[in-house]
């Protein structure tokens, strides 16, 4: 596969990129920090990625840059067939309630800008008969819950968009995969109270790569979170008002 990964320098994105490198896929990395990109590119080359791993700086907060970096990725890879997006902003509900600007920026990055990037990817993939778009949303978008109201809203919107994309374009060749990670131990979640069933990035990556290969439309990772969220979705509102998760 010829894969572009946005978010490969950290956490789950790094773990997914390593899985892909290990089996010899070609990779192109997007991320914010040039130095971190260079380090991750070197790492993925040593771990088995096919050929040179090139990269370009890309910030989800800067939608103006999307066109140029996708063009660069296409040129380098001779047309990518798979796009994996794991990057997003995160903030605790308390932090987001305390600062409206931060909250607005998070919603812009995670929802408006992410969708805008996906739209450009869709156009490129559809122009060559399709491909795979794999985007990390979150279990936080499955139900309105106290600790993830605002962040969860951004992910609910994103999941909604991705579902529609899948419905509309799968028959024409664009496979859309929505990944919904539960609590995973990464630097993003460090310091947060750990719920049961916390997962490791490597475990998530294995599930996600399998999902990409199989074209699974919705992937919960670790798997148990699919069951957990089905249960949470059934809880009545009066109960959701009382519990703190």
């Amino acid at each position: 596969m010829n894969v572009v990964v946005l978010g490969a320098t950290r956490g789950m994105g790094r773990a997914v990129a390593r899985q892909l490198a290990r089996r010899g896929d070609r990779l192109f990395l997007l991320g914010r920090d040039q130095d971190q990109l260079a380090r991750s590119a070197a790492d993925l080359e040593v771990r088995g990625a096919r050929g040179r791993v090139a990269y370009a700086p890309c910030d989800l907060a800067d939608p103006e840059s999307f066109g140029a970096v996708l063009e660069a990725a296409d040129t380098e890879l001779g047309g990518f067939d798979t796009f994996v997006l794991t990057a997003a902003s995160f903030g605790t509900q308390d932090a987001l309630e305390a600062d409206h600007d931060v909250a607005r920026r998070l919603l812009t990055v995670n929802l408006a800008n992410t969708i805008s990037l996906c739209e450009q990817v869709r156009e490129r993939l559809m122009s060559r008969g399709g491909g795979t778009l794999c985007v990390f949303s979150s279990v936080a978008g499955d139900r309105g819950r106290k600790p993830v109201g605002i962040y969860g809203a951004s992910k609910a919107g994103l999941s909604h968009y991705l579902e529609a994309l899948d419905h509309k374009y799968r028959a024409a060749g664009l496979v859309t995969i929505t990944v919904k990670p539960g609590f995973v131990r990464t630097s993003m979640t460090q310091g947060l109270p750990e719920p049961p069933f916390a997962g490791e990035p490597e475990e998530v990556a294995k599930i996600v790569v399998k999902g990409i290969d199989a074209g699974t439309p919705v992937v919960y990772a670790p798997h148990i979170w699919g069951v957990v969220m089905s249960a949470i979705k059934l809880l009545p509102r009066w109960l959701m008002r009382r519990v703190d998760f």
């Binding site: 380090r39 070197a42 040593v46 630097s187």
Partner: peptide, 19 residues
């Protein structure tokens, strides 16, 4: 432990640099 990237490896000499 999250800083675990291999930065270079020389297949001729075995010299490896990593985080």
């Amino acid at each position: 432990t999250l800083s675990d990237r291999i930065l270079s490896f020389d297949h001729d000499t075995g010299l490896l640099t990593a985080e």
